[in-house]
Amino acid sequence: MLDIQDLSLRRGNKILFESLSAQMQVGQVVVVLGPNGAGKSTLLLALQGMFPCANGEIQYQQKPVSTYSRQTLSRIFTWQGDLPPSEFGLTVGQRLALSADAKTRQSIEDALQYMDLGLLEQRALGELSSGERQRVEIAATMVRDNPIWLMDEPTAHLDMRHQVDCLRLIKQQSKDGRLIIAVLHDLQQAAGVADVVLLLDGLGGATVGDAASMLTAARLEPVFQVKLTGQGKDLRPVYGEN
């Protein structure tokens, strides 16, 4: 469904990564891992045609993404990224309505319900905590009902309960027939949801593989330059304890 062919991205003169090829299908959760500045967020932008490819191509249903109109792309991809500015006093309800486009009132109600925002609907974004605003962004992703979700650190700012809710949502939505591509930093969270892992090493290299083969100490230690212990879903960094 989403086909990345020999993709290279560049920011200014700096090469972020080169020669990334991958095929992604409905029903998958693809977790993008990599150190800061490796180009994870930029990759999410490039996938939806909001960042130019230095080389290679991205195809959606056998047609290059660049040939779709902005309008059409906005009906294929939903992007969850940075928290929107709060200066102008948009309320939670208004913010969701902007994402919902023509969708019914019901989808907004459901999303508010799921992200535990029912009481905040009339509040201005500026009055909320970062965690609450992050939940609004995830709810905004839900109301859009697009086949592909691009999520940039969806669990950032969230408390443990809402992190779990969020990861469950990702798992559930992929089963219901979406492709979800998420940037995550936590190995346990990645191991919990990933079907496929896309690893950017920050030096120009990019590798793709199924979660089990990618989430190993041998693969990740050189990239992140930390010592890892355990394996599979228990893989975790050594924090300096005995």
Binding site: L45, Q48, M50, R70, Q71, L73, S74, R75, F77, T78, W79, G81, D82, P84, P85, F88, L90, Q94, R95, L98, S99, D101
Partner: peptide, 17 residues
């Protein structure tokens, strides 16, 4: 314009040129 209130990237992702 309303979508632009969410920031340029959000607006673009929501289909605004």
């Amino acid at each position: 314009l309303d979508k632009l209130l969410l920031g340029e990237r959000h607006a673009e992702a929501l289909g605004v040129h």
